[in-house]
Simulated assay, not measured.
Amino acid sequence: MSDYQHEVELERKSATAARLFDIRLIIGGLFTLYGVIVMIAGFTASDADLKKAQDININLWTGVGMLLLGLFFLAWIKLRPVVPPTAEEIAALQEDTD
Rank of each mutant, 00 (worst) to 15 (best):
A87I: 11
K78P: 05
E95Q: 09
E9H: 03
G42C: 08
A91T: 06
W76E: 15
V82L: 12
T16N: 06
A15T: 13
A15P: 15
L69V: 08
L25N: 07
K13I: 08
F72D: 05
K13S: 08
I90Q: 11
K78R: 05
I77P: 07
D49C: 09
G42N: 09
A92K: 03
A45T: 02
W61A: 13
K78A: 05
G65V: 01
S46A: 09
W61Q: 10
A92Y: 05
P85Y: 06
E88I: 13
R80S: 12
D55C: 01
A91H: 06
T32E: 01
D22C: 06
D49W: 05
M1K: 08
F43G: 04
T32V: 01
A92G: 10
A87H: 12
T97Q: 11
I58A: 06
D47V: 04
E95D: 08
T62I: 03
Q54W: 07
E88F: 15
E88M: 13
P81L: 09
L50R: 03
L74Y: 08
Y4S: 13
Q54L: 04
F73A: 04
M1H: 14
G65T: 00
V8L: 12
D49H: 03
G65Q: 01
I90G: 06
I37A: 07
F21I: 12
A92C: 09
T44S: 15
R12M: 05
L67P: 00
T97N: 10
E11C: 05
L60K: 09
I77R: 11
